[in-house]
Design a binder for these strands. Structure first.
Length: 200
DNA sequence: GTGAAGATTAACT
DNA sequence: GTTAATCTTCACA
């Protein structure tokens, strides 16, 4: 087979309910091709955010702003923002237009480009490369320049590696959003059971 | 124009 | 477990 697009996840994958995509996206591989080289990482932990009823989401109450605008577009685009003035966070916009649903990538398992990641992160500890939202962005060299980037594009996309079996998916409450009142208890954090690369 | 808060991390006690 | 670092975005005047 010569068609390399076969392994790329199609637009239809993203244009579905955020919780459905959250379960199926575990095990997929995030690929970023840069001038320095290629980095790949398996998605092992995500969190779902739904602006319509989620106080933790930036787009809560259908708040449309400069920052959240991309969330109202169609699925498959990247939503990148700077948090605490020091770290980037990478999200994937899902579902259809006008529905502000996103997935926050919390952790990756490094697959390819390990040396490049180590250099960017300035550490030799592989487990420390991508086990957090800010860390994985640094390792994959994801910045605000990727805001609105189409994940169906050439240099930045998801590879259709096998999904994780349902019994290997753990679903729990989310992390570090204590300010979000009752939304704190929404079980919208998904990760792969027993995987050593999930965040602490 | 001014101010407050934050989907984190690393370093501390 | 607690705290500082650091800056964009948003709400208000």
């Amino acid at each position: 087979m010569e068609n390399t697009d076969v392994k790329k996840l199609p637009r239809e994958f993203y244009n579905r309910d955020v919780l459905t995509v959250a379960e199926e996206i575990l095990g997929k591989t995030l690929v970023h091709i840069t001038k320095e080289g290629v980095t790949k990482g398996k998605i092992v932990e995500v969190e779902a955010y739904n602006g319509l009823c989620d106080k933790a989401a930036h787009s809560y109450k259908n708040l449309r702003s400069k920052r959240t605008e991309i969330q109202y577009g169609e699925g498959g685009h990247a939503y990148v923002y700077l948090i605490y003035g020091m770290h980037h966070c990478m999200n994937i916009v899902v579902n259809r237009e006008n529905l502000p649903e996103v997935l926050l990538l919390r952790a990756l398992q490094p697959i390819e480009g390990l040396e490049l990641m180590k250099k960017r992160r300035k550490t030799e500890n592989v487990k420390m490369l991508c086990n957090g939202p800010g860390k994985l962005c640094q390792a994959m060299e994801i910045t605000r320049e990727h805001y609105g980037e189409d994940l169906c594009g050439e240099n930045f996309y998801l590879e259709n590696t096998p999904s994780v079996k349902p019994e290997e998916i753990v679903r729990t409450k989310r992390i570090n959003i204590d300010y979000a009142k009752e939304a704190v208890d929404f079980p919208w954090r998904f990760f792969i059971k027993g995987n050593p690369y999930v965040s602490r």
